[in-house]
Write a protein that binds this DNA or RNA. Structure first.
Length: 876
DNA sequence: TTGAATGAAAC
DNA sequence: GTTTCATTCAA
């Protein structure tokens, strides 16, 4: 049976896409899954596009295949893969991030780093993943009652093990269970899933999580939810859940826009758009078109957040808190709009935008004044923003750029939908416009090329996009900033952050980008990284890795460290104002938020530098989005709402719901995972988004910036180091002049490293390997700190900043390039983003008190590091 | 196809 | 305790 199926699949593949079709199918099939693994994301994405088109066309084939699969596969169970454990979830979530940081690093190396991160990860954060994994497992088990993790009994696998060849997946066919208990949903899943894969979605994305959805649905037993673990397109096969939430959602959107449009297209488009939106959000595009899309997507996302918030508010009645959050969001959105508009139209659009901006500002003021009307105001703002800026201004452009248009529209439509229920007339208006926009979607769908591009771009680092936009904004800001000196100062600080981000983003992607100053060294250093890592890998394999680990990555790390430090320091300093950062986070500071907003408005009005501020905020907003901060914010908001409204106490349910932190940026991985949402709580957003929620859950899983881990790293390393050996070895030079010492360290390290290679020191297996990996991780994160003992690491950061500041701080502003040059841009970028937050908050504070805190302050460096941490923690 | 990590489950 | 396998993808 299986063989026949396989053959079919293959044949199908060959026929349809050649290899591609199979892949997806394969993934779902345990047997085939591995094969699928090989192909790259890009290909998958492309496949998706193709699939989409094909799906409709090919329906019959897909069905046959699916059916065959279900039968052949024996039980859907076989298909089902064992649920991922917390660590795997973590890896899945962060691997892309790691890879971004270390493009050259292969998966193994990435895995090591991930392991390090995981080790360092705070218990709380870990718990999130653990909980998710648990839920996932539970759901999975529900779906697959008979499922056995290790078919050991069934499969002689072990005994035969000698042939490592096939070991991994396939064997565990399930006994008879497969079909037996499988709750209908499960089958549906299994069946549907593949279909979906064929048709629309990325099987990869669907991942095992889809099972979760099914299980969740099943458990919930809520017919309404009918989790669409599978994608809508499968409607054919999906008897059970004919209409997945996504499908419904798509329909709604389509209906909203144009009933005439065939549902299929709408669905597909909607799904894609949604996915793209998420991806865009995460990546915010490197290329211009992408940028636009990304921006719009972000903007829409923000809107969505607002809308959802608005709804929730009504429900929860926590108007004020929401208002606060909303207000911030608005501002952010506005900032985005401005940037977006600027970006798109550039100079020409400026005037209009400015006008809009002013309007928005006025509106904001109103909002601050009238809290009750807040919702309406928001709507106004949104409307104004979209109507004026995006639509009127951008309309044509958008139309031209179908990509952007459809995405935003889609998201917006979703939001609008929600809004509609709550909001009266205005909302309707809004909806229509969006609907119009949506119409374009189908066309967009028709153009796979764009999608592909986007996807590719998605791969690009999110930061890159962010950066790009911020830059422009910054530039403009600078021009306007001239108005007020004090403001300028603050603005500059912010701007710098933005610049840094931009640069960072750019460099990280390509990694080797030759940055201007001192970058040559960096470039040189980069190659060493690989070598080092490879070496380390080898070392680990050999188990030679010593407790000492001095084998730290040689020069390049040091170099990168210097750069990083330079970059970090200023930001860190800026970030110092922890409170501001907190303020930046709406959820936490709901109360403050409002005042801040008002302050901001005031500032805007009073100061001629409205744009600058807004632009800065906009940049910050992007950064937030990219960093996932937005997600966290939204999550917090949602939590608050839910808590007030529903009060989900249960961990599981609560987790899912709560966890539905908006679309996370889901970085690179985001594109892939489009799973369905969970059914349970959708009431708020509407059942329509169950699917989304599901995806969200996974995507929502906190994505930590490397920086976060850095701090955390300290403790872990100690543990691992345990052995006294380690302590002695670490070179401690860190304090003095970094660079000179760095060199020395470098030499030392190199020498040590070599030495180690030749003679592995004490190699205790586990400890040694891990340790080595950790060191890499540490090195990567804190190159400079490597030398220092782990204990000092924490201290070292601040210190480094301080010491480094003198030299590099000056450079920082001017030499954003250096930042960009650092190979580990992502971490830096993340740091910047946090810093940017802090800066923004600081700006606000400054405006309030008008005291500009010098960015370069040495005095508060320590706080800096914490601030980001706090943020991350808060988020999560 | 392997491996690099962690964790859960089945031995 | 040991083994299997979940994700990911370059090598």
């Amino acid at each position: 049976m299986k063989g026949s199926n396989r053959n079919k699949d293959h044949s199908a593949e060959g026929e349809g896409t050649g290899k591609r079709p199979k892949r997806k199918c394969l993934q779902w099939h345990p047997l085939l899954a591995k094969k699928l693994l090989d192909f790259s994301e890009e290909e998958e994405e492309e496949d998706e596009e193709e699939d989409i088109d094909k799906v409709q066309l090919l329906g019959a084939d897909g069905l046959e295949q699916d059916a065959g699969e279900t039968e052949d596969d024996e039980s859907p169970e076989q298909r089902a893969r064992r649920p991922m454990n917390a660590f795997l979830l973590f890896c899945k979530r962060h691997r892309s991030l790691v890879r971004q940081e270390h493009p050259r690093l292969d998966n193994r190396g990435a895995t090591k780093i991930l392991a390090d991160w995981w080790a360092v990860l705070d218990p709380k954060e870990k718990q999130k993943y653990t909980d998710m994994a648990k839920e996932y497992k539970d759901a999975f088990m529900k779906a697959n009652p008979g499922y056995k993790w290790c078919p050991t009994t069934n499969k002689p696998v072990k005994s035969p093990a000698p042939t490592t060849v096939n070991p991994r997946k396939k064997l565990w066919a399930f006994p008879s269970d497969s079909s037996r208990d499988l709750p209908s949903p499960k089958k549906a899943k299994t069946e549907e899933m593949p279909q979906l894969n064929f048709g629309m979605a990325d099987p990869t994305q669907m991942g095992g999580l889809s099972m979760l959805l099914l299980a969740g649905e099943h458990a919930l037993g809520t017919p309404e939810i009918s989790s669409g673990a599978c994608r809508p397109d499968v409607s054919e096969s999906s008897e059970l859940r004919q209409k997945s939430p996504l499908f419904q959602f798509a329909e709604i959107s389509s209906s909203t826009s144009h009933p005439d449009v065939p549902s299929k297209q709408c669905q597909a488009s909607a799904l894609f758009q949604f996915a793209e939106i998420s991806s865009n959000t995460s990546h915010l595009g490197g290329a211009e078109p992408v940028k636009r899309c990304g921006k719009s997507a972000l903007f829409q996302l923000a809107e969505m957040c607002l809308a959802s918030e608005g709804v929730k508010m009504e429900e929860s009645k926590l108007i004020r808190a929401k208002e606060l959050d909303g207000g911030r969001i608005k501002e952010l959105e506005k900032g985005k709009e401005e940037r977006d508009t600027k970006m798109e139209k550039t100079d020409e659009a400026r005037l209009q935008k400015e006008a809009e901006f002013e309007k928005s500002a006025k509106e904001n003021v109103r909002d601050s004044k009238e809290i009750r009307n807040f919702e309406e105001l928001r709507m106004d703002d949104i409307i104004g923003i979209k109507m004026e800026a995006p639509k009127e201004i951008k309309k044509e452009e958008l139309e031209e750029d179908q990509k952007c248009g459809h995405f935003p529209d889609f998201s917006y439509s979703a939001s609008s939908k929600i809004i509609i229920s709550d909001v009266p007339s205005r909302k309707d208006h809004i909806c229509h416009p969006h609907g119009i926009m949506i119409i374009e979607d189908p066309t967009a769908l028709s153009k796979p090329e764009k999608l592909k591009k986007k996807k590719k771009k998605n791969k690009m680092d999110r930061h890159g996009n962010d950066k790009s936009t911020p830059k422009k904004a910054c530039k403009k800001r600078q021009s306007s900033e001239s108005d007020i000196e004090s403001v300028m100062y603050t603005i500059e600080a912010v701007a710098k952050g933005d610049w840094g981000i931009e640069k960072l983003g750019d460099t990280p992607r390509k990694k080797a980008r030759p940055s201007s100053s001192g970058k040559g060294s960096i470039l040189d250093a980069k190659p060493p990284k690989k070598k080092v890592r490879s070496r380390e890998k080898k070392m680990s394999k050999e188990k030679s890795s010593d407790p000492t680990k001095e084998s730290r990555p040689p020069d390049f790390i040091s170099i990168s460290a210097s750069k990083n430090i330079s970059g970090e320091v200023p930001e860190g300093i800026k970030a110092e104002p922890l409170t501001p950062t907190e303020d930046a986070l709406p959820p936490t500071l709901s109360g403050q938020a409002k005042p801040e907003d008002s302050d901001c408005h005031r500032k805007i009005e009073t100061c001629g530098s409205r744009k600058s501020e807004r632009s800065c905020k906009g940049a910050l907003y992007k950064t937030l989005v990219s960093e996932g901060m937005l997600t966290s914010l939204r999550a917090n908001v949602d939590r608050g709402k839910r808590s007030s409204g529903k009060g989900n106490s249960s961990d599981h349910e609560g987790c899912w719901n709560e966890e539905s932190w908006a679309f996370s940026q889901s970085g690179t991985s985001g594109s892939k995972k489009f799973k369905k949402t969970k059914p349970k709580e959708d009431s708020v957003l509407g059942s329509t988004k169950l699917d989304e929620e599901f995806e969200k859950k996974f995507n929502s899983l906190p994505q930590y910036s490397p920086v976060t881990f850095d701090r955390k790293c300290v403790p872990v390393p100690r543990k691992k180091k345990k052995t006294g050996n380690m302590s002695a070895e670490p070179t401690k030079t860190s304090k003095g002049p970094f660079q000179s010492q760095k060199k020395n360290l470098f030499h030392k390290i190199v020498s040590k490293y070599k030495h180690k290679k030749e003679k592995p020191n004490v190699p205790e297996k586990g400890s040694g390997d891990k340790w080595s990996s950790k060191q890499l991780f540490l090195d990567a994160i804190h190159p400079t700190e490597d030398d220092k003992p782990r204990e000092q690491l924490q201290r070292s950061l601040p210190k480094v900043i301080e010491t480094g500041c003198s030299d590099e701080c000056s450079h920082n502003r001017e030499a954003a390039e250096t930042r960009s040059s650092t190979p580990e841009m992502p971490a830096v970028s993340a740091f910047f983003s946090l810093a940017a937050l802090a800066e923004v908050a600081a700006m606000e504070n400054v405006h309030r008190g008008q005291r500009s805190t010098p960015l370069t302050h040495d005095g508060q460096p320590k706080e800096m590091p914490q601030a980001p941490v706090l943020i991350s923690c808060a988020d999560q």
